[in-house]
Design a protein around this nucleic acid. Structure first.
Lengths: 127, 127
DNA sequence: TCCTTAATGATATAATATACCATTAACAGC
DNA sequence: GCTGTTAATGGTATATTATATCATTAAGGA
């Protein structure tokens, strides 16, 4: 018996899909908590980790801020607004060969790379 | 009177140069603390921030870990070892036009980008 | 030397996340 | 359907990183 389907885990995964735009663990907790008030914050964090391990979610690590969880499982880059903190997906070509370039200059084993842009989003420019 | 030269600030800057390899604020505090035990952790954090503001240091934000401070002021990318957590500079060409590419696909104002690679460093491969 | 105020140091607090552990419940086997 | 194993939960405690607050100290211009 390896993994059990609890409704807490289902609620957690559904919340990330419902929230859609890169929710933090806290966002997910708040969303789930309205539907099932007795859920523990620990359970939400734990299930988010499990769901990332199993490949059902992608963890988007953000410099100096809470991790985000993404239901878009394809490799892609992100933009964070310095003003409002919102995170959005970027439709930029994924640089496939850059990991090899990195590995080539020093004998490192390179597993992955992430690119995070920052600046001002279109919403905040209107203000 | 805009900025004052305290020996605490000098100690902080010197420590980053002495430690050289991307120390965290805590690393810097420990180093300075041996030389001047009565220094406050707050003062080290505050001075590191000031030194970044004034352009004397570069802050290297690390996904899900403490910020690092770099005395190398040129734009460059970083590699972090998943095993030991060490951070190293990469001698890769800086992608100058990628900020414009990002700005071009959605009306965002793009200030900067960072690329962080991860994998296994040469030291940890030996083990 | 004096005065203004930047900077310090100590403590409190915020934010994010995991550790621990007694209790609960999922689900495989009968 | 019942039982037993153990994964998962929920609550609390704790770790880590970093900033806020504020009374006190001291840098450096006048």
């Amino acid at each position: 018996m390896n993994q059990r389907n609890t409704f807490q885990r289902t609620l957690t995964l559904d919340a990330v899909h419902a929230l859609a735009n890169h929710p933090t663990a806290d966002d997910v907790y708040n969303f789930v908590h309205t539907k099932y008030p007795q859920i523990s914050r620990t359970t939400v964090y734990r299930n988010l980790n499990k769901l990332c391990d199993s490949g059902d979610l992608l963890r988007v690590k953000i410099f100096g801020a809470a991790d985000r969880f993404d239901h878009n499982l394809q490799s892609h880059y992100h933009f964070r607004c310095d003003e409002c903190g919102s995170v959005s997906d970027l439709d930029l070509p994924y640089i496939e060969n850059i990991n090899q370039m990195c590995a080539g200059i020093g004998g490192r084993i390179v597993n992955a790379h992430q690119i995070l842009f920052d600046g001002i989003c279109t919403e905040c420019q209107k203000k």
